[in-house]
Design a protein around this nucleic acid. Sequence first.
DNA 1: CATGAATGAGGTTTCATTCAT
DNA 2: AATGAATGAAACCTCATTCAT
Lengths: 198, 198, 198, 198
Amino acid sequence: MEAAIAVFGEHGFRAATLEEVARRAGVSKGTVYLYFTSKEDLFRAMVEKKIVPLIEAGEASVRDHVGTSADLLHQLMCRLWERIARPDMVHLARVMQAELNHFPELKRLYFEQVIQRQRRLLRTIAERGVAAGEFRPEAITLVPMMVPSLILHLNQYRFLFGDLDRGLPTSDATRELVFSLVLDGIRTPSRVPRGKKG
Amino acid sequence: MEAAIAVFGEHGFRAATLEEVARRAGVSKGTVYLYFTSKEDLFRAMVEKKIVPLIEAGEASVRDHVGTSADLLHQLMCRLWERIARPDMVHLARVMQAELNHFPELKRLYFEQVIQRQRRLLRTIAERGVAAGEFRPEAITLVPMMVPSLILHLNQYRFLFGDLDRGLPTSDATRELVFSLVLDGIRTPSRVPRGKKG
Amino acid sequence: MEAAIAVFGEHGFRAATLEEVARRAGVSKGTVYLYFTSKEDLFRAMVEKKIVPLIEAGEASVRDHVGTSADLLHQLMCRLWERIARPDMVHLARVMQAELNHFPELKRLYFEQVIQRQRRLLRTIAERGVAAGEFRPEAITLVPMMVPSLILHLNQYRFLFGDLDRGLPTSDATRELVFSLVLDGIRTPSRVPRGKKG
Amino acid sequence: MEAAIAVFGEHGFRAATLEEVARRAGVSKGTVYLYFTSKEDLFRAMVEKKIVPLIEAGEASVRDHVGTSADLLHQLMCRLWERIARPDMVHLARVMQAELNHFPELKRLYFEQVIQRQRRLLRTIAERGVAAGEFRPEAITLVPMMVPSLILHLNQYRFLFGDLDRGLPTSDATRELVFSLVLDGIRTPSRVPRGKKG
DNA sequence: CATGAATGAGGTTTCATTCAT
DNA sequence: AATGAATGAAACCTCATTCAT
């Protein structure tokens, strides 16, 4: 039923009609009101349904990770990228950016349960890297701020202008570029001159 | 009259009513139709009015710049930031991301006249830096992709969650963080260990 | 529901308001749109609903008629008159004359399915009369052209100026006058001088 | 200025816009209101302007006519036909049929000054023909009723369906058919068998 | 005289929401 | 539990009419 999330994603909150939601869900318009008290309520429920998995995306792995912090960061970025680089998520992000200001509780929920947790997770990794002498101290500020921004926006860009922009790197290549940029920005300078690195 | 751009910025295209646009403009509903043939037309005109200045924002300065490429990049980023970090521009960017898919000509216009030009400008700077041995070759790919993304999204974040996120750095501080991240990611490794730099 | 045809008949297409149509139908404005996609669609549907019976008004009777062709013609004219001399039909004819040019498909439908069929029917009768030596050859041209014209226009006249024109003959008397005029115009001259006829 | 009568003719009263009237007249919308107090007033004025010539179309000729009454009738029918078989007149007739019920004074004016005079004129001719033994007494009823009906409606038919109806006789031929039909219907039977006539 | 910018009532159309079945 | 016909408020848009210039 709620799989008719697509409608909000395609048209946005205002332009989406319950008619279409109901049709795609294979039920009648009236039936929607048996489960949701209003269009806003449906929207809220839809967002929450998509957010919950984001919330639950495990923080555990960070705690007992072995290996370099760079590896750990890479691993997390890959997981985030994977989750966000899907049409429904990009759509959701777009709609949320457009509508969240009209749904204060939803906004707070999203901020506290998704954004903040994600940033905290990223900060934890950064802190560990700094503690290990792997990252410079700036990492603690940089990583939680830049990583989500880049991941989100580059994917939105791809979906919005992908048809017009010839020569856009693949999604995976883009992800690796982001990773290397961030890593360059935070890693402690090695003795070895960079030229030799690769 | 077009100062009623705010309405689209606040509500988006669908939710904005001509009634409110007219009221804020201090005219009657009918008057709007003397200048624009439809709501879509008004939207188009509004976007174009805001886009044209972006287009015209000079590319000349790049040509006859003296000083390091890093300085030049910093200078350009400051100008971009300045232009984007204003409420109306952030709103415009949000609405455009939400609606541009429904206005193909507008989308193309925006892409060709704003996005592509901006990227070309950034690439020119990157190329010059590479030629001068100041930047690594990756800069040519990295700069045009990451810089606009970061500038745009970090500002949108500030406007969307600024009220909830305690401890957000100031706008200028954020800008400098972006700059230093990018610079770290592209500059050729100097002999001098980084510790001495700052 | 379609009984609210009256509104178009009274005011014409443009002047008729859906508000009034809905009110007379005893439903709300929105309900009309459950059954018709637009005002034009409602108009089309209304016209077609009134036209279909005209189309179906049988041509069979002509085939197996016994008696003089004059009798047959009289009989057909009576049937046509009867059908047209009703307020709703006169109204419909008036509105159609006013609006048909804006509805090309409707115009073609009306022409092919009503006008042409009617003329063909009348011509068949005329031809039979000519073949039987009862009518002069001119009948074949005259009858299909003049009969519908007279029937339609005299009835429209009655409805438009009936209140002002004292001394208008009754509807039936008018019909008989038309019949006798037409008959005089087409019948082969009998040996018997006309004076004796009446 | 009032030559912008065409607009009412093309669109009807409701669909005609003062905007278009003004544009075609080469003046501004405001100017129209210097000469007419309202759209209705403009319509009234326009109708009256077209009606006055109809009224003035001489009755004198009838009084001092020499020749047969049939000739006189033919002459008058030709003049009527000529006047009506023009696009602007057909349009006017159509619009009037559609709108006259909403303009009672106009309707009365038209009826008394045009319709009745015309009928009186036709009756005078019929009476003279009867008195001269040329026409049968029925002519007095038939002529004023049938002649205007046929002239008006056949011309309207030509304008409405002329594009669809292949094989429509020319305007002049149609007029002569009408004349001969009417004449056949009213003339006293001659001794000479009809066969010899043509 | 003439203009044309401005108005706002009124019309068509959409759609979230309700409710009898 | 489910439906879908019905609603009516609200949106977009038109255009006859006014009025300052």
